[in-house]
Every structure is written in C-alpha cells, then in structure tokens.
C-alpha cells in the first residue's frame, strides 16, 4: 500500500513545504502587471510538486520579468540582459539534482538574447522556460520590442513601428531539436497553471510563451484579445494540456491538435488571425545535452590523480 511500510507506519515526507515557503518579499511590479499571476502560479506549482527550495534555481536576464527570482525563496540568479540561458545551462550541466527555471521577457529573449535562445532550444537541457511577452520594453519605459505589432507607437517609434513581429512560438519550432512548445495567457490563470505544470513535467527544454499585459505601456493590447472570444482557440488532445471542464467551457473555439505533429503545429503558429492556447509540440525523445553533462560525475581524488599521472607519462622524457 502506498505510503505504508511493512510495519504499517506511514512514510511521511521529512519536510512539507507550504506556499509561504516559496515566497519572498513584495513583488515590485506595477498593479495589474501579468507577472503577478505568473509568480502566484509558479509558487503553487512548486508547492504541488514539493520542490525543495534549496534544490531549485530560478535564472533570469534583465527586464521587468527578470526580477522574478528575487520574489522566490529558492536559489536565484538575476543575470545579464539576454544571457539567462547560458547561465542556466552552466548551472544544470554538472548538477542534475537541481531544478532549473528560466524567466525571460520579449526583449531579453527575442532581441538581445536571440542567439542564446536559439542555441538553448537546440541544447534541450532539462529546464522550464517562461517567456513573459508583453510586446514592449517596460523597465526602460516604452520602447518597441521585436514582438511588437506593426504600427506600435513607442518612444523610439513615434510614427509607429514598420517591421512585422517575430513570432516566438513559430521561431522556436523552427529550431533543430525543439522538444516542448506551449502557449498560454496571463488572464487565464487556470490554463496557465496547467501549462507550466506540463512544462515542468516535460524532461527537456520546455518553452512556454505567456501572452501578457503591460497595463502601463500596452494597455489596449489584451483588451482586443479578451474581447474577441472567437480569436482564442483551445487546443485539445489526449497528449495535450487539459484544463477543467469549467475552464474549457470559457473557450468559444476548440481544435483537436496532436502535439506530435510538428508541421501541423507550425501551421497553427503561422496563423496570425487566432491565438492557440495549449501544447503545440512535444518530443520526449529529443537528445538532451544535460545527459552529456551528467555523464561522468563523482570521480575521486585518487582517480583524478591517476588520470593526471597517466597523461604526464605521455610527456615524460
């Protein structure tokens, strides 16, 4: 019987982590910012999974969303603009015991960090990645982002931006060795929770695109999406991300999509008339670079000494 040992005593976890155990400080994001909802959901996920805060590391770059690690009572690394991925990869490389999360924004990931992002997808190391995309630079006060729509008026594009946005979901699925791509939105916390849970459970690089409000600099953006119920499409599949019936009922549009089908997933990502919510693509068999990283751990000093002596012999006169 689960939880009971032969002498019928219960196998209790040595320590139970409450929600408060994951909380730290008061988040300094603007009222109404989508980041708050992500933070709350993440703390809930860690409690449900009972992740040891000492074995959990949140890594971020620079930007509003990258303040995230400061509000988690885990280990955290608030890094450089665009460089969360290499740091997270280095952390995970020789520490398979650590749970690694990356929180990044549209400027951090898609603009200055684009090179590291593309390669992080290919490395496919086991980490959960949340891209909090509000389509604008917030921390530096309203500059256009590579995900801003054509015509975005910002402090650096006073006459409206002229280039089409980069679609993070589409781009991610264009990279070799992609293994998990999902999309959710900050105004549907229940869907977001199930999405980040599925992402955490995936063994590999789980990329979650969170469509998000910036009430201060992109106020109208989400109103348009939330008011047009027809535009939001719930992706259904037995291997996809499933929400409760109550939440599923809030979607006017539903579509059955097999997350094993990469070309269908790419077609959905290309469709800019709709926003698809759920799991676009998953491949549980993609090679993982962290498997290589964990491949020869635990050598003793004696083994290292023998290896060095062996090499010195080759150079001996």
């Amino acid at each position: 019987m689960y939880g009971l040992k032969e002498d019928l005593t219960a196998e209790l976890p040595s320590k139970y982590f409450s929600l408060e155990g994951y909380e730290k400080g008061v988040a300094r994001w603007c009222p109404g910012c989508g980041d708050h909802a992500v933070l709350t959901n993440m703390q809930k996920l860690l409690r449900e999974k009972q992740l040891d805060p000492a074995k959990t590391v949140f890594v971020s770059g620079i930007g509003c969303s990258s303040r995230f690690p400061h509000y988690m009572n885990t280990y955290g690394f608030h890094g450089l603009h665009g460089r969360a991925f290499p740091i997270a990869e280095g952390i995970k490389f020789r520490r398979p015991d650590l749970h690694v999360f990356v929180v990044t924004g549209d400027g951090d990931c898609i603009s200055i960090g684009a090179g590291a992002w593309i390669h992080a997808i290919r490395y496919n190391m086991n980490m959960t990645v949340l891209l909090l995309n509000n389509e604008i630079y917030g921390l530096t006060k309203k500059q256009v982002s590579p995900t801003s729509r054509i015509g975005t008026i910002s402090n650096t594009t006073p006459d409206g931006s002229i280039l089409p946005p980069i679609n993070p979901v589409q781009t991610t699925m264009g990279v070799a060795n992609v293994s998990f791509v999902a999309q959710t939105a900050d105004w549907n916390p229940a869907h977001m929770y199930e999405t980040i849970k599925a992402a955490y459970e995936h063994q590999g690089f789980s990329f979650v695109h969170v469509i998000q409000r910036c009430p201060v600099f992109q106020g109208g953006l989400v109103d348009e999406l939330t008011s047009n119920k027809e535009a939001m499409v719930y992706l259904e599949h037995e291997n996809g991300i499933t929400v409760s019936e109550e939440i599923a009922r809030t979607f006017k549009q539903k579509l059955t999509h097999d997350p094993a089908n990469l070309s269908a997933a790419r077609d959905l990502a290309m469709d800019d008339t709709k926003v698809y919510m759920g799991l676009f693509y998953q491949n549980k068999d993609a090679p993982r670079y962290d498997d290589y990283g964990a491949s020869n751990l635990g050598f003793t000093v004696e083994q290292k000494e023998a290896a060095l002596n062996h090499e010195l012999d080759k150079f001996a006169i």
């Binding site: 590391v57 890594v59 690394f77 890094g79 450089l80 460089r83 991925f85 290499p86 740091i87 997270a88 990869e89 280095g90 952390i91 995970k92 490389f93 020789r94 520490r95 650590l98 090179g115 590291a116 593309i118 390669h119």
Partner: peptide, 18 residues
C-alpha cells in the same frame, strides 16, 4: 555557441559549485 555564452556557461557552473 559564442564567446559570451562560453563565459556565461562557465559562470553558471561555478555558481552551482563546479
């Protein structure tokens, strides 16, 4: 993938104790 990522990766590994 590049010089910047190389040092960032090294810093991540160092931070994690290696």
């Amino acid at each position: 993938e590049d010089e910047i990522a190389a040092v960032g990766f090294a810093i991540g590994a160092s931070y994690a104790g290696k």
